[in-house]
């Protein structure tokens, strides 16, 4: 019944329930990094242009700044590049902007949120993950470890989990046409079959007509237990087929 084994994080909660969180792979992580890096890049570009728009004599203003202010400015610029990640992860529940966009989150190995130290470790280690260029070391490490962790994650004891958008509506959706009384149905469906039927129903609207027809027929044969006239009646139109399938999936017991 299990779907294809993908890397996951097993967490044992005090409630004695085992959580299985899906781990974000290298693709998600690269995309999230691109979003973050792009954001930082454009932030500086925009800041620069706004500054030049507001102030005509940029060099003059910079030179007019007091020494301390200028030092703070340069150190501040530098620190922003390093602090951005840690601030995001500590204060926004393990998510920088890019991670939020991609729906991934940094957690400790036991599934709890990251603290300051973990986040600092994994982000300081960007220096070594980046080596020799463009996170090559980090990527190799992600490919080699089972849970796609880069060197910084290994050192900090963290990893990234994925948050999926799961729609429960398909379970509770009711068809427009009221279900006809079921004939011939006696056997209870397994959860896997229910899932299969519901997945089909959720997508049926977008399928090509003959595919819709063919798959509906296969499913009716699999879950219906109908024969002869009844089967022909159910298969007469896609709407009737799907109404039957929906009723079948929702059938009690």
């Amino acid at each position: 019944m299990r779907t294809a084994p993908s890397p996951h994080l097993d967490v044992a909660t005090p409630e004695r329930v085992a959580l299985t969180l899906p781990v974000a792979g290298i693709g998600y992580r690269c995309l999230a990094w691109l979003v973050d890096a792009g954001l930082l890049f454009f932030f500086w570009i925009v800041t620069y242009f706004v500054f030049t728009l507001l102030v005509s004599d940029v060099l003059g203003v910079l030179q007019a700044l007091s020494g301390l202010a200028r030092t703070l400015l340069v150190v501040g610029l530098f620190a922003t590049q390093w602090l951005y990640w840690t601030v995001g992860e500590v204060f926004f529940h393990g998510q920088t902007v890019g991670k939020r966009v991609l729906g991934i989150r940094v957690v400790r190995m036991d599934g709890s949120p990251v603290g300051l130290f973990e986040s600092a470790v994994r982000n300081l280690c960007r220096a070594v993950d980046f080596l020799p260029m463009l996170y090559a070391a980090g990527c190799i490490s992600m490919l080699l470890t089972r849970q796609h962790r880069r060197l910084g994650d290994l050192l900090a004891g963290t990893l990234l989990v994925r948050e999926e958008r799961i729609d429960l509506d398909k379970y509770t959706a009711t068809s427009a046409t009221t279900a006809e009384p079921l004939q011939g149905a006696t056997r209870a469906l397994t959860p896997g079959e229910v899932e299969l039927v519901l997945a089909f129903l959720a997508r049926a609207g977008g399928l090509a007509p003959q595919v819709r027809q063919r798959m509906g027929e296969k499913l009716v044969d699999r879950v219906g237990g109908l024969s002869g006239d009844e089967r022909a009646a159910v298969l007469a139109s896609p709407e009737r087929t799907e109404a039957f399938l929906r009723a079948r999936a929702r059938a009690e017991g």
Partner: peptide, 18 residues
């Protein structure tokens, strides 16, 4: 097991746990 309901609850509990 292996249904979307399972995955949903897993994630929900994961968030609540965190």
């Amino acid at each position: 097991p292996g249904t979307d309901a399972h995955r949903f609850l897993n994630q929900l509990c994961g968030q609540a746990y965190a």
